[in-house]
Design a protein around this nucleic acid. Structure first.
Length: 131
DNA sequence: ATGGTGACTCGCG
DNA sequence: GCGCGAGCCACCA
Protein backbone atom coordinates (compact mmCIF):
# COMPACT_ATOMS: atom_id res chain seq x y z
CA UNK A 1 0.00 0.00 0.00
CA UNK A 2 1.01 3.59 -0.20
CA UNK A 3 2.82 4.27 3.01
CA UNK A 4 4.79 7.06 1.43
CA UNK A 5 3.10 10.41 1.76
CA UNK A 6 4.82 12.73 -0.69
CA UNK A 7 7.57 14.60 1.09
CA UNK A 8 8.06 18.29 0.64
CA UNK A 9 10.93 17.60 -1.69
CA UNK A 10 8.87 15.30 -3.84
CA UNK A 11 6.17 17.93 -4.16
CA UNK A 12 8.79 20.43 -5.23
CA UNK A 13 10.06 18.11 -7.93
CA UNK A 14 6.58 17.50 -9.25
CA UNK A 15 5.79 21.19 -9.53
CA UNK A 16 9.11 21.96 -11.15
CA UNK A 17 8.37 19.32 -13.74
CA UNK A 18 5.33 21.36 -14.73
CA UNK A 19 7.43 24.31 -15.80
CA UNK A 20 7.50 24.28 -19.61
CA UNK A 21 10.68 24.86 -21.62
CA UNK A 22 11.33 28.53 -22.24
CA UNK A 23 9.79 29.49 -18.92
CA UNK A 24 11.16 29.88 -15.40
CA UNK A 25 9.83 30.25 -11.87
CA UNK A 26 11.31 31.21 -8.55
CA UNK A 27 12.02 29.30 -5.37
CA UNK A 28 9.54 31.44 -3.51
CA UNK A 29 6.79 30.89 -6.05
CA UNK A 30 7.25 27.16 -5.97
CA UNK A 31 7.05 27.27 -2.20
CA UNK A 32 3.91 29.40 -2.34
CA UNK A 33 2.27 26.98 -4.73
CA UNK A 34 2.86 24.26 -2.17
CA UNK A 35 1.20 26.32 0.53
CA UNK A 36 4.41 27.43 2.24
CA UNK A 37 5.06 31.00 1.10
CA UNK A 38 8.11 31.25 3.34
CA UNK A 39 9.78 27.99 2.46
CA UNK A 40 11.81 29.31 -0.44
CA UNK A 41 15.04 28.19 1.15
CA UNK A 42 13.72 24.70 1.53
CA UNK A 43 12.91 24.63 -2.17
CA UNK A 44 16.44 25.64 -3.01
CA UNK A 45 17.70 22.96 -0.71
CA UNK A 46 15.47 20.41 -2.39
CA UNK A 47 16.91 21.24 -5.78
CA UNK A 48 20.48 21.09 -4.53
CA UNK A 49 19.71 17.64 -3.16
CA UNK A 50 18.82 16.69 -6.71
CA UNK A 51 22.48 16.28 -7.44
CA UNK A 52 22.14 12.86 -5.99
CA UNK A 53 19.23 10.60 -6.96
CA UNK A 54 16.72 9.92 -4.19
CA UNK A 55 14.59 6.91 -3.45
CA UNK A 56 11.88 8.01 -5.82
CA UNK A 57 14.32 8.34 -8.67
CA UNK A 58 14.29 12.11 -8.94
CA UNK A 59 17.55 13.40 -10.32
CA UNK A 60 18.92 16.48 -12.03
CA UNK A 61 18.41 14.52 -15.22
CA UNK A 62 14.66 14.14 -14.96
CA UNK A 63 13.75 17.34 -13.12
CA UNK A 64 14.21 20.66 -14.97
CA UNK A 65 15.93 22.31 -11.99
CA UNK A 66 17.49 24.91 -14.29
CA UNK A 67 14.09 26.53 -14.70
CA UNK A 68 14.07 27.79 -11.14
CA UNK A 69 15.81 31.08 -10.34
CA UNK A 70 15.48 33.58 -7.53
CA UNK A 71 12.74 36.17 -7.20
CA UNK A 72 14.86 38.76 -8.95
CA UNK A 73 15.12 36.61 -12.03
CA UNK A 74 18.76 35.85 -11.42
CA UNK A 75 20.62 32.57 -11.31
CA UNK A 76 21.15 31.97 -7.66
CA UNK A 77 23.92 29.43 -7.38
CA UNK A 78 26.69 31.54 -5.94
CA UNK A 79 29.03 28.94 -4.54
CA UNK A 80 29.05 26.66 -7.55
CA UNK A 81 30.01 28.69 -10.54
CA UNK A 82 30.29 25.67 -12.80
CA UNK A 83 26.73 24.67 -12.02
CA UNK A 84 25.52 28.21 -12.48
CA UNK A 85 27.10 28.39 -15.91
CA UNK A 86 25.52 25.13 -16.88
CA UNK A 87 22.15 26.43 -15.77
CA UNK A 88 22.55 29.49 -17.98
CA UNK A 89 23.50 27.36 -20.94
CA UNK A 90 20.63 24.96 -20.49
CA UNK A 91 18.17 27.83 -20.24
CA UNK A 92 19.50 29.49 -23.35
CA UNK A 93 19.19 26.26 -25.26
CA UNK A 94 15.53 26.27 -24.24
CA UNK A 95 15.02 29.74 -25.60
CA UNK A 96 15.35 31.71 -22.39
CA UNK A 97 17.30 34.92 -22.65
CA UNK A 98 19.99 34.99 -19.98
CA UNK A 99 22.35 37.94 -20.01
CA UNK A 100 25.99 37.83 -19.00
CA UNK A 101 25.13 38.61 -15.42
CA UNK A 102 22.82 35.67 -15.22
CA UNK A 103 19.73 37.81 -15.31
CA UNK A 104 16.45 36.80 -16.88
CA UNK A 105 13.54 39.05 -17.84
CA UNK A 106 10.72 37.63 -15.81
CA UNK A 107 8.16 39.75 -17.65
CA UNK A 108 8.87 37.48 -20.59
CA UNK A 109 9.85 34.11 -19.18
CA UNK A 110 8.02 33.84 -15.87
CA UNK A 111 5.84 30.77 -15.63
CA UNK A 112 2.47 31.68 -14.18
CA UNK A 113 1.11 28.22 -13.57
CA UNK A 114 -0.61 26.98 -10.47
CA UNK A 115 -0.91 30.25 -8.60
CA UNK A 116 -4.15 30.57 -6.71
CA UNK A 117 -3.15 33.38 -4.45
CA UNK A 118 -2.70 36.12 -7.00
CA UNK A 119 -6.38 36.12 -7.74
CA UNK A 120 -6.81 37.70 -4.36
CA UNK A 121 -4.53 40.52 -5.40
CA UNK A 122 -6.40 41.17 -8.61
CA UNK A 123 -9.75 41.28 -6.92
CA UNK A 124 -8.48 43.74 -4.39
CA UNK A 125 -6.86 46.02 -6.93
CA UNK A 126 -9.96 46.29 -9.04
CA UNK A 127 -13.16 46.26 -6.98
CA UNK A 128 -15.76 44.93 -9.36
CA UNK A 129 -18.76 46.10 -7.32
CA UNK A 130 -21.19 43.79 -8.99
CA UNK A 131 -23.01 43.06 -5.80
C1' DA B 1 15.64 16.69 20.47
C1' DT B 2 18.87 20.56 19.38
C1' DG B 3 21.67 23.02 16.29
C1' DG B 4 23.83 23.99 11.77
C1' DT B 5 23.28 24.57 6.80
C1' DG B 6 21.71 26.35 2.21
C1' DA B 7 20.67 26.89 -5.35
C1' DC B 8 15.69 32.17 -0.63
C1' DT B 9 13.29 36.63 0.23
C1' DC B 10 12.20 40.98 1.95
C1' DG B 11 13.20 45.49 3.98
C1' DC B 12 16.72 49.12 4.82
C1' DG B 13 20.30 52.26 4.13
C1' DG C 1 21.13 48.90 -7.92
C1' DC C 2 23.97 46.55 -4.25
C1' DG C 3 25.31 44.78 0.27
C1' DC C 4 23.56 43.40 5.03
C1' DG C 5 20.79 41.46 8.49
C1' DA C 6 16.95 38.91 9.97
C1' DG C 7 13.19 35.67 9.27
C1' DC C 8 11.73 31.03 7.59
C1' DC C 9 11.91 25.95 6.30
C1' DA C 10 13.12 21.09 5.61
C1' DC C 11 16.83 17.87 6.31
C1' DC C 12 20.72 15.68 8.43
C1' DA C 13 24.12 14.65 12.35
Amino acid sequence: MQTNAPSFYEKVYKVVRCIPPGKVSSYGRIAAMLGHPNAARAVGYALSALRRPDENGYTSANVPWQRVVNSQGRISIRHREATANKQAEMLRSEGVKVDENGRIDLSIHLWLGLHLIELDDILRDEPTDHR
